[in-house]
């Protein structure tokens, strides 16, 4: 499977938010726990709407949750 061109800090942000579980984050975003796990592990690229919802839960701008990988020249 091709590697996604961005990484994310969801796991760390969950930890900082009183060790929020993937299920709790999923409930607040409106997706399943498995979808949060897939996003966290870089297996699934979420829609812009879900990405914004995740950032909104953590009260962070989108670019602090998802980061574009440096392109290799």
């Amino acid at each position: 499977m091709a590697e996604l061109p961005f990484t994310n800090d969801i796991r760390m942000l969950r930890f900082l938010m009183c060790e929020m579980t993937q299920g709790e984050l999923g409930d607040r975003v409106g997706v399943t726990r498995q979808t949060i796990a897939a996003i966290e592990q870089g297996k699934y690229s979420p829609s812009l709407e879900v990405a914004f919802r995740i950032a909104h839960v953590f009260n962070r701008p989108l670019e602090e949750v998802f980061r574009w990988r440096q392109e290799k020249d």
Binding site: V31, T32, T35, P46, V50
Partner: peptide, 11 residues
């Protein structure tokens, strides 16, 4: 709870 969850975008 899981059974009542709506299908999300990944599914």
């Amino acid at each position: 709870k899981e059974a009542h969850l709506k299908e999300d975008e990944r599914e």
